[in-house]
């Protein structure tokens, strides 16, 4: 990447951050994350004796005698599960407007009048949007991981890896927002389609059970195609949980097929954007 090209990318990323700051998206996430981190720092008190928790105190209630490793992994798992479900919905909902905002009349003409390729504008904005969410997720996960590490002496890396997977799935879902944004220039439509995919994911993940329930081969094929074609939010969440709990990960298919989906959808978005008249 040339210096000029890098300068343009940095400008687009910074502009996305500025817009996220102005829309309070960044600060809302940051505030929630900080509240959770402070909760773990000040409210939860843990005494560890010889690898086991002697006491754990939460809002004055004390329990005893738990395996410290197990407890830490469970808390990590709960946070990862929250980020994969509610957190993901919030992230898509909050940032869906950042992409279609670029296509507003009076704004897009000025961007296109600059000596920058169209794909560069969209990719710069996409990267900026991913980084806004990634900054918050990494902040929360890393801080919680550090707090628990200091309090319990347990430093399992699985939780950190799960944050990478959370950002990855967000990046995949954001490609849908990009495509819908380019096609319809509407944050509402983009959010609805991304939510639809997220809701479909746990249903399609039960494909072996569903296949037994479906009567025709045609409907079974439709379901298989949908399962393999759409991003596997639920399955990647399961992989993240396995990483956190230290269980075997299973296959890589949910990750690479979701990545492939993201690449195809983003390419389609870039292609349509390059052909559109503004």
């Amino acid at each position: 990447m040339s210096t000029r090209s890098l300068r343009v990318t940095v400008a687009l990323v910074l502009d996305t951050f500025r817009e996220a700051f102005a829309r309070k998206i960044f600060w809302a996430f940051f505030g929630c994350s900080t509240a959770l981190i402070l909760f773990f720092i000040f409210i939860m008190k843990i005494d560890v004796v010889q690898g086991a928790i002697a006491t754990i105190s939460l809002f004055g209630n004390t329990s005893r005698g738990q395996d410290v490793q197990k407890l830490v992994r469970q808390v990590h798992g709960a946070i990862a599960a929250f980020l994969f479900t509610a957190g993901m919905f919030l992230a898509v909902f909050a940032s869906a407007g950042l992409i279609p905002a670029v296509f507003e009349p009076g704004r897009i003409e000025l961007l296109l009048s600059k000596p920058v390729e169209r794909y560069h504008i969209l990719i710069g904005r996409y990267i900026g949007n991913v980084l806004v969410i990634a900054a918050n997720i990494f902040y929360l996960v890393f801080a919680v991981w550090t707090v628990f590490g200091i309090k319990t002496g347990v430093w399992t890396p699985g939780f950190l890896w799960s944050s990478v997977l959370i950002v990855f799935i967000f990046a995949v879902l954001l490609t849908v927002v990009v495509l819908m944004g380019v096609l319809w220039e509407s944050a509402v439509v983009a959010t609805m389609v991304a939510f639809g995919i997220m809701i479909m994911s746990p249903i399609l993940a039960q494909q072996t059970i569903l296949e037994r329930l479906l009567t025709s081969e045609w409907s079974r094929n439709v379901m298989r195609v949908m399962y393999y074609a759409l991003p596997k939010v639920f399955d990647v969440g399961r992989i993240a949980r396995s990483l956190v709990l230290g269980d075997p990960m299973g296959g890589w298919m949910p990750i690479w097929s979701s990545a492939l989906f993201g690449v195809v959808i983003l390419s389609a978005g870039l292609y349509i954007f390059s052909r559109r008249n503004y």
């Binding site: 000029r4 502009d15 704004r107 000025l110």
Partner: peptide, 29 residues
């Protein structure tokens, strides 16, 4: 080599005059 001022422009209102000039100039290289 083009400087362009569109009709009915909508500069992002979250930018200040200074940051707006900085952003578009960066895009101009």
């Amino acid at each position: 080599p083009i400087g362009y001022l569109p009709e009915n422009h909508r500069f992002p209102t979250y930018l200040t005059g200074r940051s707006m000039l900085d952003f578009y100039a960066a895009l101009s290289g």
